[in-house]
Design a protein around this nucleic acid. Structure first.
Lengths: 106, 106
DNA sequence: ACAACAATTAGACGATTAGCTAAATTACGA
DNA sequence: TCGTAATTTAGCTAATCGTCTAATTGTTGT
């Protein structure tokens, strides 16, 4: 869970997650939304992947990034619960390609 | 708020906030819960204060730290809303300026 | 096989971070 | 006023971070 918070501590990475919330995206497409270089974005992606917040799938020349909503939820849940806060999904659509899968992450 | 997320990115600081959730605490008392030096803890406190997550009050020789729950909530709220998540307090008051009084037990 | 494209890795750099010890500050009590 | 206690500030170090350019890897189409 610490890796998740570390990942969330950078505004660029938070924005990446928000973009991925809409739909999975290809690395280059994602990178276009930001003003930093592609290698820099690649490093951000690596941090997000290391935290288990995104997963990748190769598709020919491109690599698709997909948000793992359940990992984000679980981390947020674990933290907020310790503060007497409750977190829940408004929409049933935590889906968008991802199936609220249980997966062991770091 | 970026400063809040930066502040939350360190596990020691997250634990400080959780300790403060129970009741306001004096700096030294708080520091006893950790294995690092007092100056190091002082630096952590400064980060939390800089993020607006805690407020201080001098009381003679000691300095009392108090959690500003509303600031934490607002940051979490702003973030989670962008993901279609809902966050709410299990306890009654989410009021701004909440003093977090101790209620029934623990 | 090769050129073009997508993305990552390598290597470097300055800025920030978390940690330490020692010194300074602030308040209290004898 | 002096000594002690609580905390912060100063100054340092090692590690990590975000960024860059250049080079590398992997894939496709010709």
């Amino acid at each position: 869970m610490n890796k998740v918070f570390k990942a969330l501590s950078d505004p660029t990475r938070r924005r990446v997650l928000q973009l991925l919330r809409r739909r999975p995206m290809v690395a280059g497409e994602l990178a276009e939304h930001f003003e930093v270089s592609k290698p820099t974005m690649s490093a951000h992606f690596a941090v997000l992947r290391g935290a288990g917040l995104v997963e990748t799938e190769r598709n020919g020349k491109t690599i698709i990034y997909r948000l793992k909503m359940s990992v984000l939820e679980d981390a947020l849940l674990g933290f907020t619960q310790a503060f007497g806060l409750e977190i829940q999904s408004k929409e049933a659509s935590i889906v968008s390609g991802d199936r609220h899968r249980k997966e062991s992450g770091s």
